[in-house]
Write a protein that binds this DNA or RNA. Structure first.
Lengths: 241, 241
DNA sequence: CGGGGCATTGATTCCGATCAATTTCAGTGG
DNA sequence: CCACTGAAATTGATCGGAATCAATGCCCCG
């Protein structure tokens, strides 16, 4: 209906969605949830590397990540790739194309992932179902996150940037009720460095230093934070979130 | 009604607003414009240094800059000030507080400025008046701009960051139908450097270099771009906007 | 077992931060 | 109208840290 292949409209209702508390469905009555199920489209599961949308696609919907982690990226005219964000369950993405009607970024799954589509034309209907405040909240959270990320990027020190980013991830994880010391990090060092505006060597060095100091442990797709205070100190410049 | 002092509800109708083409009123019929006038609150003119809202204020509205330039900033726990953005006529701001209900940033006028308030509770009404697409477009533009700013910040070279920022300003100015070679820049070097994550000395040096090379001229509250191509080359990494 | 992408570690260079001095300019009062 | 003043901007010199170039190690895959 709106460009996603393999929509599962009506299947897997919002009422049983494990991430419904993070999304537009938060704080809705169960009757409204049933109606919501028929207004929101859930995408087919995306495999690692598959795109939810690509730069140039028509932008007639916003998306909420339902499971997994997605990265958004743009390719500049000179061919360089810029990772604009990593997006976890409950984050709203795809807003950047709304002004022009076409997506300026691509959204790619870093691991198996699903997302729900809020078509722009269905927004008044969603409002009528009582999802308005939740959607506003999602937009506000996104705006707030982008603002914090920009503040973090304005730090010139590599340790501050990385510590700040990890702290943001931890805060978000904690806010969603999960263990903040265990972070899902399915992105490559290259992507992470790109996103933070650093070289992968630099990121690697800082992580190695912290690993040796016992601050954290790095796994293939995750990270264990052993001494959150140390990270917080290195990132003290960030507003508490 | 929503925290702004000195509202001018109904005065200076949207129909005669010089920036209506940039705002929620774009592409509306004149009958709807009259109704819109009574739904949107226009703030009293802000003097230089006055705040539209402050961190901690209740966040029950979004704002569209109507005239002048505003800066948004946060103060981190350790007391450091971070300039999160400079906002020109037609930009929507204040979204960052929607998630929590309280503003996390402050918005301060850099020169005489006015803004219009879209209260969250009036959004369905605005939709009914036909302003929905325009509001979505404003949100999309903001999201797109934040994304581009983040890409720009990820550049480590000072020249690239500054050139990129100026280019973004020029693109925005051109898109609004004004002369892109004449930029309103009422912010101090300190604020500009803070926003770009550089020191003011560094910004000053780069601008001096370009001034000597004839690329641009710097005035107190404005900047004349003499050789846009030179800037574009220095910022070639940015996507065309 | 071998290959290739990815991560780590090392050595050097360069650029922006920092510390410091000077100039410019808007605002103020004589 | 001009001299005075303090903030803002510019210019200079040095230092540190991240980029860069280069090599090695690790691990998932066939």
């Amino acid at each position: 209906m709106n460009g996603i292949t393999g929509l599962l409209r009506g299947k897997d209702g919002c009422a049983i969605c494990p991430t419904r508390k993070l999304c537009a469905a938060r704080a809705m009555t169960s009757e409204a949830l049933d109606a919501l199920t028929h207004t929101i489209d859930t995408s087919a599961p995306l495999k690692r590397g598959e795109a939810l949308y690509r730069a140039g696609d028509r932008a007639d919907a916003w998306y909420i990540v339902r499971s997994g982690v997605m990265k958004t990226l743009t390719v500049t005219p000179d061919g360089e790739e810029h990772v604009t964000g990593f997006h976890y369950a409950g984050e709203i993405i795809g807003l950047e194309g709304t002004a022009t009607g076409g997506h300026e970024e691509s959204a790619v799954a870093l691991e198996a992932a699903t997302a729900c589509a809020l078509t722009l034309e269905s927004l008044p209907e969603l409002w009528a179902l009582g999802a308005g405040p939740a959607i506003l909240s999602l937009i506000g959270e996104r705006d707030r996150t982008l603002s914090l990320l920009r503040i973090n990027m304005s730090q010139s020190r590599a340790e501050m940037r990385i510590a700040g980013y990890l702290k943001l991830l931890m805060d978000r994880t904690a806010r969603q009720g999960y263990d903040p010391t265990c972070l899902a990090m399915p992105m490559s060092r290259t992507d992470l460095a790109n996103h933070l505006g650093l070289t992968l060597e630099c990121v690697s060095r800082v992580l190695s230093k912290w690993r040796k100091a016992g601050v954290l442990e790095t796994g293939r797709n995750s990270m264990q934070i052993r001494q959150p205070d140390e990270l917080a100190t290195a990132a003290y410049h960030l507003a508490a979130a």
